[in-house]
Design a protein around this nucleic acid. Structure first.
Lengths: 132, 132
DNA sequence: TTGGCTTCGAGACATTACGTCTGAGGCTCG
DNA sequence: CGAGCCTCAGACGTAATGTCTCGAAGCCAA
């Protein structure tokens, strides 16, 4: 039983990016931005993508009478990042995110400021109880 | 143009895990571990998966005469993790890994030891030049 | 040698995901 | 009324993925 999954696909992500940028948008607006070539069928494509994103719970829709539906992302960029990292941890690290963290710190060329920020973040966590 | 990608698929990952655990293995050995149900066709399945992994350059094969081919992973777990993080950064963060890092530190319930280890890692980086 | 086993290589196959496209119907506005 | 949007729903082609099968070849034991 073959079944590739990815929660948010390539084209869906392009749509999400527009919503992230603009906050809210109509299908027409998303289409104009995400498909500048302006094919006739692009509108329908975007509509389908928004529909699927809505089924997944990542996008909400506001009905307005006399005006086109207004769409907004319910999953923001950070949310998607967290979600993806979680999935990745489950697949590759038995659920633990620590290996990902280690890999990132090792790989990333962190500037001095980055390192400072990171240290501050950790200190912050130290403060907030959870001192296990 | 539809084209979902993932570099390493679900089934391929299962095969890789076996190679990571055992170091090297024959098709038969991988099959026995990854497909305990023991269908007749599983051998062929594993063979195909190994072939595809080899095309992607993630697995190497050693010919031995008189004995079945011996397979080994050329991409280890950390390598795959780094690779995946990289892909993710490109898709979601314009190539920068910093947002991933921040998200991880925020999300992960880091124990005191984890935090210590992380601090040490950062200090280590501070030492090694690259003090931009 | 024959028969049976395993391996190897290659390809066929069914199912699904994904992106795209189309048509029917409804509404508004001129 | 007609034109032009919008919405809903579904169909479609292509590709990916996992599975399955086949023919050829090698090895070993009887």
């Amino acid at each position: 039983m073959p079944r590739p999954i990815s929660d948010v696909t390539e084209a869906e992500l392009a749509v999400l990016q527009v919503l992230w940028d603009r906050g809210t948008a109509t299908i027409r607006q998303v289409t104009d931005i995400a498909y500048p070539q302006g094919r006739a069928s692009d509108y329908g494509t975007v509509q389908k993508l928004l529909e699927r994103l809505r089924e997944k719970g990542h996008v909400s829709r506001e009905r307005r009478d006399g005006a086109p539906h207004l769409f907004a992302a319910t999953l923001d960029r950070d949310g998607l990042i967290g979600r993806s990292l979680q999935t990745m941890a489950e697949k590759l690290c038995d659920g633990s995110m620590t290996p990902l963290l280690t890999s990132l710190v090792r790989t990333e060329r962190l500037s001095a400021e980055d390192r400072q920020a990171l240290r501050r973040l950790v200190d912050e966590l130290d403060g907030k109880g959870d001192r296990s």
